[in-house]
Amino acid sequence: MTTRFSTITAPARFLLLGDSHAGPIGRAAAAADLPFLGGPIGAAREFTDDFFTASPQDVTFHNAETEGHYRQFLAELGVTGLGQLRVPLVATFGFAAHFIATKQNWHLYRTGDGFPAGFLHSPLFDAIVTETVRDALAFYRHAVDLGLRVCAVLPPQRVPNQSDPAVFLAAQEPVRRAVAALGVEVVDLRDRITDPSGFQRPELCEVDDEIHGNLAWGRIVLRELLDLGL
């Protein structure tokens, strides 16, 4: 990807925190001269289980590097804790569907070349998926409880070889519902970025990369954020 973090000296319109999928969103904002703070602060797998501790007005990230970047962003915003944030929070935590869909995690549930009829839309499947991202859900819950406006962005619709495409497509829906139920505004662009296969259109894909969207994808996300009033 490109520069890991983006900062603009003018008053920030939002704080961006997430995995590598936050990168193209930040690049799009920087290219549009839209002031913001933040960017990718870790890998997708780091933002599912036990990645932070909540306190009455803040969070502490367990990874030292992630925590350091987070504190830097807060300082540049002139606050000392998440609860003091006066701009919207844009995040990608919990929506790394390619990680949830890792093939080896789903062998137990397969029958032959597929899954039992209805499994991918069953309460069991939903429970497995939401349990996988339980700490991401806890993060969103805490941010909303602190009074923040939170927008969460669904990922590019791209499936690497180590992931199961059917699980990838299905897993996003229980996560989306769970996040939305917390009062988070979910940026779901699947109908605008995919072709008839259900996967990302080639012109929105990062070249020589199995997972990420490119700057054009980031611009579509940014346009939706602006339409939401950020």
Rank of each mutant, 00 (worst) to 15 (best):
H62K: 14
L17S: 07
A178D: 06
F5W: 15
W217I: 09
G68F: 15
S122C: 01
A101C: 06
D19E: 02
G147C: 00
T130V: 08
G83E: 00
F51N: 00
A143V: 09
T53P: 04
F52H: 05
G68I: 09
G23N: 14
Q57D: 13
R192H: 04
G218N: 14
A31P: 11
I128N: 01
L77P: 02
A75E: 15
F139I: 03
A64G: 06
A138I: 04
S122L: 02
I41Y: 04
F51R: 02
Q157G: 03
L77E: 07
T66C: 12
T92I: 12
E210D: 13
T48W: 00
S55H: 14
P165Y: 00
I41K: 02
V167C: 07
H98W: 07
G39T: 04
R176W: 07
H121D: 14
D191H: 14
V184D: 01
I8R: 09
A170G: 03
L146D: 02
I193C: 07
F125N: 03
I25W: 03
A96N: 13
F73G: 02
T132K: 12
P11D: 09
K103V: 12
I211C: 00
P35Y: 00
D164E: 08
H121G: 11
A22T: 12
D209I: 11
W217S: 05
I41S: 06
G68M: 11
T66H: 02
G26F: 09
Q162M: 11
R86C: 06
D195V: 04
G112C: 07
L204I: 02
G213W: 02
P165F: 00
F115A: 15
L148K: 05
R149Q: 14
T3A: 13
T9K: 11
Y109Q: 12
A178P: 13
I100C: 01
M1K: 05
D208V: 13
P56G: 01
G81T: 00
F199S: 06
E76W: 01
L82E: 09
L169S: 10
F36S: 04
L225D: 03
R158C: 00
G26C: 13
E65D: 15
E67Y: 05
G94S: 04
T3M: 02
A96Y: 05
L17M: 11
A75N: 15
